[in-house]
C-alpha cells in the first residue's frame, strides 16, 4: 500500500556536490559541453560571453600567504523552486520559454520558444543562464560529434543546464520498452555526475529518502528543502530561491562564502 502510494509521486531531482572532493579539474564542464552540444569560439577567455552551462568558480579565503586557501565551486543551473513556488527566472519569462516542471523539479528552457529578451538572465543571481551572442559554428567536420538528443541552439536565444533532461527521457523510453514506468536511481544520472573523476557529484531524487542525495543533505522538504546536514549549504539561501543544488564542505569559510552576511553578522543556525 505504501509502495503504491509512492508510485507516481512527483520527483524532485537534485544534486549534491562535495566541495571537499571536488578538485576543480573541469571534467564536469567538458562532460556537460560534449553531452549538450555546447559550442565554442576561438577565444573563450571572456567568461561573460562564454557558454558553460556548468561553470567552476574558484574561491579564495582572502587571507595572505601562507594562510591562503582556495576552493572550487561547480555551478550548474540551481533549478530553483522559489519560495512561492516560482523560480526567479520562470516567472519573468514573457513567452513561457522556460518553465518549472512539477514532475521532476527541473527548470526547462525551450530554445525555439525563447525570443531572446534576456529578462531571465537579469533575474538569475547565479549567472546560470547564457545567451547565444554568436551563431554556433563548428569547424568543418566537427559537427559529426553532435548529439541528436539535444538541439544545437541558434543565435539570439538563452540556454542553460537542464540536468540532462534528455537522459531522463531516454531512460524513460528504455523503461517503457521493459514495461516499467518508474526509474531506478542509477538509470538517470547527469553527464557531469557520471564523468566526475573524484566522485564529488551525487544526483538523484530529493523526494526519495532511499536516494543518496537525500541521505547526504537530509533536505527539510517542508521548508523549501533546507539542508539539515550541518556541512551542507546552498548558494544564496537567504534569497529564497530554494535551489536544488547542494554543496558539502567541512570548511566554515567555504560554507559562509555561499551567502551574503551583513558585517559581523553571525551565521544563523537553523535547526
Amino acid at each position: 500500500m505504501k509502495e503504491e502510494h509512492k508510485h507516481g509521486k512527483a520527483s524532485k531531482f537534485g544534486m549534491v556536490i562535495d566541495l571537499d572532493k571536488c578538485t576543480g579539474c573541469g571534467s564536469c564542464m567538458v562532460a556537460c559541453m560534449s553531452e549538450n552540444n555546447v559550442p565554442f569560439k576561438k577565444d573563450e577567455t571572456n567568461k561573460l560571453d562564454s557558454i558553460t552551462w556548468l561553470r567552476i568558480y574558484k574561491l579564495t579565503n582572502g587571507k595572505k600567504f601562507p594562510e591562503t586557501d582556495i576552493c572550487y565551486i561547480p555551478r550548474p543551473c540551481m533549478q530553483c523552486e522559489g519560495d512561492h513556488g516560482h523560480s526567479p527566472c520562470v516567472s519573468v519569462c514573457p513567452a513561457t520559454a522556460t518553465d518549472y516542471n512539477h514532475e521532476t523539479g527541473i527548470v526547462s528552457q525551450i530554445y525555439t520558444r525563447c525570443f531572446g529578451c534576456r529578462y531571465c538572465m537579469a533575474a538569475c543571481p547565479y549567472h546560470a543562464r547564457y545567451f547565444n551572442w554568436w551563431d554556433p559554428v563548428w569547424p568543418d567536420g566537427m559537427e559529426k560529434y553532435l548529439s541528436p538528443n539535444v538541439s544545437p541552439r541558434m543565435r539570439g536565444v538563452v540556454e542553460k543546464c537542464s540536468f540532462c533532461f534528455h537522459r531522463y527521457q531516454l531512460a524513460k523510453n528504455k523503461a517503457y520498452a521493459q514495461g516499467r514506468r518508474e526509474l531506478k536511481e542509477d538509470e538517470y544520472q547527469t553527464a557531469c555526475t557520471q564523468a566526475c573523476p573524484a566522485g564529488a557529484i551525487t544526483f538523484g531524487d530529493l523526494n526519495n529518502s532511499h536516494h543518496a542525495v537525500y541521505k547526504l543533505v537530509k533536505p527539510d522538504n517542508k521548508h523549501g528543502g533546507r539542508p539539515r546536514n550541518p556541512n551542507a549549504f546552498r548558494l544564496l539561501e537567504r534569497l529564497g530561491t530554494n535551489p536544488k543544488v547542494y554543496y558539502l564542505s567541512s570548511r566554515e569559510w567555504v560554507r559562509r562564502a555561499g551567502d551574503n552576511y551583513i558585517k559581523d553578522e553571525v551565521k544563523k543556525e537553523h535547526h
Binding site: 573541469g26 571534467s27 562532460a31 568543418d140 567536420g141 566537427m142 557520471q194
Partner: peptide, 19 residues
C-alpha cells in the same frame, strides 16, 4: 578509472574530428 574520466579524455572527439 571506474567510470570517471578527465577532461582531455572527454574531449577526445574534438581531436578525432577536429581541424
Amino acid at each position: 578509472n571506474d567510470g570517471g574520466v578527465c577532461l582531455l579524455g572527454l574531449s577526445g572527439l574534438q581531436l578525432l574530428y577536429g581541424p
